[in-house]
Write a protein that binds this DNA or RNA. Sequence first.
RNA 1: GGCGCGGUAGCUCAGUUGGUUAGAGCGAUCGACUCAUAAUCGAUAGGUCGGGAGUUCAAGUCUCCCCCACGCCA
Length: 570
Amino acid sequence: MARHLITSAIPYINGIKHLGNLIGSQLPADLYARYQRARGHEVLFLCATDEHGTPAELAAAKAGKPVAEYCAEMHDIQAQIADGFRLSFDHFGRSSSPQNHKLTQAFAGRLADVGLIKEVTEEQVYSVADGRFLPDRYIEGTCPNCGFESARGDQCDNCTKQLDPTDLINPHSTISGATDLEVRETKHLYLRQSELKNDLAAWIDSKKDWPILTTSIAKKWLTDGDGLQDRGITRDLDWGIPVKKGDADWPGMEGKVFYVWFDAPIEYIACAQEWEDAGKGTDWERWWRTDKGADDVRYTQFMGKDNVPFHTLSFPATIMGTNEPWKLVDYIKSFNYLNYDGGQFSTSRGRGVFMDQALEILPPDYWRWWLLSHAPESSDAEFTWENFQTDVNKDLADVLGNFVSRITKFCRSKFGEIVPAGGSYGPAEEQLIADLTTRLRAYEGFMDGIEVRKAAAELRAIWVLGNEYLQANAPWTTFKTDPETAAMQVRLALNLIRIYAVLSAPFIPDAAAEMIAAMQTQDKDWPTDIAVAVAALPAGQSFTVPDNLFRKITDEEREEWEERFAGTRD
RNA sequence: GGCGCGGUAGCUCAGUUGGUUAGAGCGAUCGACUCAUAAUCGAUAGGUCGGGAGUUCAAGUCUCCCCCACGCCA
């Protein structure tokens, strides 16, 4: 039995994510976690909310709530939606947890001890009225390039130019509107990533099996321009993890917090501790410390391509820099973007489907199947309602759902709701078992390699084999002259339902559970040996005819949703 | 402007280290079947592989130039 540590990129606390975010990390991570569990491996699957930084503070202010309260509420909402999509996290943690506070401070302290932290004095805009510095989005003014009046401290939303707060004309605080701003010196900590450049490069080079998308992005950051740059890991903010050197105060850093990108990945580790502290497991270090049992763990991360630099460089630098035996990632699966009907998903314009809305209109399996079978692995992928409708109707309702329906109903009418006895295999059955075995091995190969689209295509082909078998052997015709053989054919087909349930569960867990329940079995074992698995449901076992597993999406619904989610064009 | 990922049948996508008639699913057309959610199964038709030049006995697959889309950065 192998051990798999699996993490999904942690979604930012601010707002509900869209389907592109879902397929970019959490959903494929869940697929992989469910698959590895089904194969009998030990899995720790972790995710969390990323709660620090200015966007959280601003969103809380807009909602008129203290930021801690806002984050707690949003965490619950995201947890609920994740549950709605059946994301099977062993723990859904929070980067604001006490565990992450301690661990982040410990990492910083350790990095300082080994000389990988430097202090840098820089100039920042300070608001006298607010009594604080105004980083990034806390300051607005007129853009010096295009004259846009609401340009932010870090970027102009009109001309997209990157800005420094000190560039702005007539700057003011977005908190109070105050204009009595001055430039003050402030001290910040930098992680000396550049010191680790060679180690990182060697490590990346050793990962021959990583997706091109992952390594090409990492290498670009390593070699582009002057190479990997040292990175500021602190901010003049209130909301965040206070800067401390382990348990000790950090002279000169009073009132400052760690930058969100420093503490967020450390939450992957802290989350395991939260998992244990929540009573869901024991000995979290067994997953994260190679000196405490984690040397046989295979660690796989899932993320969108925008997160790759942090996971291939900054976070590994944090870990490698400590010289402590923390587990490094073994495989990074990164995804491109999902486009919505020829454009991008857009939160501000309400364009595209968001996770809560998706669950309002259809059950999770519909979305899981379509998104996973169209995962943006090799390039950006495209969501269109027409595609969604035809694919879901065909694959789920016609190929799989109807298969279950046709065989259970046929059996009920001829033999009753009992797996019928009698008859013996002929060449057709041997051939079916051989074909299923071939395809199952291929399916396992794609799932092990996290080739999501190919795995979905193979699974679908496995479903089709059942329909082909019924069509070619026509038990409804056989029954008229040879009821014994018809009974054998039906018994075999009923067993396919159980097998399909087990194989399909990582993609469509709800439908799989219904199929298992209808077959009235507890046997969810992986059908490693198909010849054995096709006899798992013995003659005489009762079953029930389930309701249709999937309904079809109508043209009217498709048109309605197309309009509803089109958003406002600019 | 620099860089990155792409541009393959109507649609969504596969195509290992260059090698016989370029593949799948959907959609379309035709046929079979009637157990089933007007479902299923089979067959057929669709591509000068973005454009051009080059290397080679041989290029979708390598090199160069150009065009288009998306993204990142300055």
